[in-house]
Design a protein around this nucleic acid. Structure first.
Lengths: 152, 152
DNA sequence: TATGAATAGGAATTCAAA
DNA sequence: TTTGAATTCCTATTCATA
């Protein structure tokens, strides 16, 4: 079985089962005749960016990141790759300059992604003003936006 | 320092710093003169339901769950506690009966929470129809909704 | 490049104590 | 109830191999 197929199966298993540990996935795969080790599952989890979430009931489960979140982040990234002009900070504020017309779209996407560092976000045609909860948060956000705009 | 205060500080540290490991939090706390061990941080993480996320760059970071997500889940829970009547499943479908008038609200909240098991969701005045990606998913969702409606 | 076996490294829990 | 120390358990990585 190819890695890509295994990844698909893995996501399905996560939706259909309650997965407490990576070993659970090893077992679920084994039930389906797929022999893999925990090491492989760990790598798969990293690549699929699956997360281990502490639940209210005191247990931990592995889950998929929400599709919406993934989608929105991708859209933001693509938009920034086209429209990013510059990002600067001052105290807890971050100013993001974008190509004319893109301000509102970028602002809305940023709000949808819902970064914990950000307190509020407002835009006009070519500028997005981001008010962060802290100066360090502003640095992190500036860095994140610049990275999204430039990488691959 | 009381646990509650430490929890607050912890959230703040997460927003302001890049946290790779629980040890990082131990150190950040120490810099602020708060002596705690990894064991305590681990418990804090569990209680605050913080998550360790694999990033694109191949590293892992601890982050806060998004406020929006937490809020929405809380709202859904509260609404269900008031309005839940019954939940039943048939194959991959889950029918949720609610007090008249609550269908659209509940449906919208369910969509906002964005459960990976759910494919689509539609409602009328007192019924929410949930179409899941699998039969097992339907079982999980039914269980989740019933639990939310009844617990504490 | 992908994987398993072994291992290191990190996280959660147990146990004792306050 | 909360915590630290020690320990166990789980996860990530290394190293070898295909």
């Amino acid at each position: 079985m190819k890695k890509h197929e295994r990844h698909k199966l893995l996501k399905q298993l996560l939706v259909e089962n309650t997965v407490y540990r990576q070993e659970d996935l090893v077992n679920l795969m084994a039930q389906r005749g797929i022999e893999v080790t925990q090491a492989t599952i760990s790598r798969d989890i990293k690549q699929l960016q699956l997360i281990k979430v502490p639940l209210n009931d005191g247990s931990y489960r592995y889950t998929l990141p929400s599709e919406k979140e993934v989608d929105t982040t991708m859209k933001l990234k693509k938009t920034l790759q086209d429209a990013f002009v510059d990002a600067d900070i001052h105290n807890e504020m971050c100013v993001l300059k974008v190509q004319p017309g893109n301000g509102p779209t970028v602002s809305s996407l940023i709000e949808q992604v819902d970064y914990p560092e950000i307190f509020a976000c407002i835009s006009d045609d070519d500028t997005v003003m981001i008010f962060n909860r802290s100066t360090q948060g502003a640095v992190k956000i500036q860095d994140k936006l610049e990275t999204m705009a430039s990488e691959n």
